[in-house]
Design a protein around this nucleic acid. Structure first.
Lengths: 253, 253
DNA sequence: TTGTCTGTGCCATTATATGCAACAATTACT
DNA sequence: AGTAATTGTTGCATATAATGGCACAGACAA
């Protein structure tokens, strides 16, 4: 099965991808800006951007109307890494190399005249890791950051968000909506979210939300560790650290 | 400027993206498989895949003819992370949090009813990091892995690959083609590539290539550290470690 | 061989993306 | 304030370009 036909068969797709790639250089971008840069009509660009937005490849700022890259590209890149044979095979060894060397280890692959850095593994990472990979997603009701974010919302907003049933990932996962409300009340009071092995067995996690000046949660920080190292006292210490830096970061948002 | 129009305006683009997203679940995938799963005609799917391939969003195995995700998605996701305000602002603080806590720190953002993990920072990472971010690309002539890969090629293959002039990134970067050949000869002899602050000032890097059973380079491993910790002796030790694991990994490729 | 997979190439039809103008809602200027 | 020049958004006719259908060539298994 020979394959040489590397041709553009669908021009509209090529054009759409070229538009998407504008966002690599600069973000955010507006309809007009792109239409001028690419020599396309505004309505055409608008249609392309709208479709990308609906598919989660772009997000749009409600105020300015400008666009930026969305999380779908992240999901794709995670899939790329996880399914690449070399990545799957090499990473376990990289952990051991990093420990033996005591330095960072990189995995890269050649593409054309360049190398692309795929993975970075740090010394002692395996002792620390809760095995979350960047690009991964998790439900809110079973993560520390998720709880911290939910705790800052009104009941109505929560109900809107938590339409799907609360899935159980471990035997500790809170699956009852009423139970979750009690937990969120506690979360709000003590000023941090706690994931007590509710997503992954043996891993505890402390988290806080990061809000912009309007009080809207834009993200969250969490510290993750094996439950053996997560004593009651450690949890309080970690929460204190997170809340201290939370203020610093929020000032800049 | 209010914006509510989250509609699909270009059906062909929606369809193409849906096809692309098939690869998140499973890789590699063939034309027929996708056409059946999505209820599309084979020629249609073939056109979509060919276009994605030409744009680097997919790669095709020359033997089996099947497709897998390509590196363009990686470039996009790196752009997403780097341009996200919260990521830029939070990462420097995350380094300090990780050191204070001595555990992994995660940054996540809420999207719908889920949180997406954007960044992971490990304790002491700032002492280790050569500030390479996964998803980044670098030219071959100034990286340890790149040199190791080039050293395993024939002169003709190298000439084909190194058509572009050798750009200088630091004062140590080798920009002369003849000089590079000498360096590659040395690289082949001693069995490892060395980047002596040729890409980033103050950072040295030792690297080896990872080849499949046909001897074709599929990737590379490298250890990176500040030059102060990269003595002549350390370099030899690191090279020995890398070559030891290189054999283990290559057995499994 | 034969049968059945695979990915690929071709072509007419028509579904659909595009070009263009006008619109509404901000922002910038005077 | 008031005006002008932005912005993103919408609608519609036309013509482009994606699609559906079929046929083909190479790979693999029986």
């Amino acid at each position: 099965m020979k394959s040489e036909g590397t041709e553009i068969k669908i021009k509209s797709l090529q054009k759409a991808l070229q538009v998407l790639e504008c966002f690599v250089e600069k973000q955010p971008l507006g309809v007009t800006e792109i239409s001028e840069k690419m020599g396309l009509y505004k309505s055409n660009v608008h249609n392309i951007l709208s479709t990308f937005k609906a598919m989660d490849y772009l997000e749009q700022d409600p105020d300015s109307g400008k666009f930026r890259l969305g999380t779908a590209v992240f999901t794709l890149s995670r899939a790329l890494r996880e399914n690449l044979d070399i990545s799957r095979i090499a990473v376990p060894f990289m952990r051991r190399i990093a420990d033996e060397a005591g330095e960072v280890v990189y995995l890269s692959i050649p593409r054309g005249e360049e190398v692309v850095y795929l993975e970075a593994v740090y010394p002692e990472a395996q002792k620390l890791s809760g095995s979350i990979v960047t690009g991964e997603r998790a439900r809110m009701h079973c993560t520390s950051v998720g709880k911290a974010i939910l705790a800052g919302m009104s009941r109505a907003e929560r109900d809107e968000l938590l339409k799907e049933p609360l899935e159980a990932f471990t035997e500790n996962t809170i699956t009852d909506r009423g139970e979750l409300e009690k937990e969120l009340k506690l979360t709000a009071e003590r000023q941090y979210g706690l994931d007590d092995m509710e997503l992954m067995f043996g891993i505890k996690c402390v988290g806080v939300a990061l809000c912009n000046h309007e009080g809207k949660p834009e993200g969250g920080l969490s510290i993750s560790a094996p439950s053996l190292r997560m004593s009651e006292e450690k949890i309080r210490v970690f929460a204190e650290i997170l809340n201290r830096y939370k203020l610093e970061i929020q000032k800049r948002l």
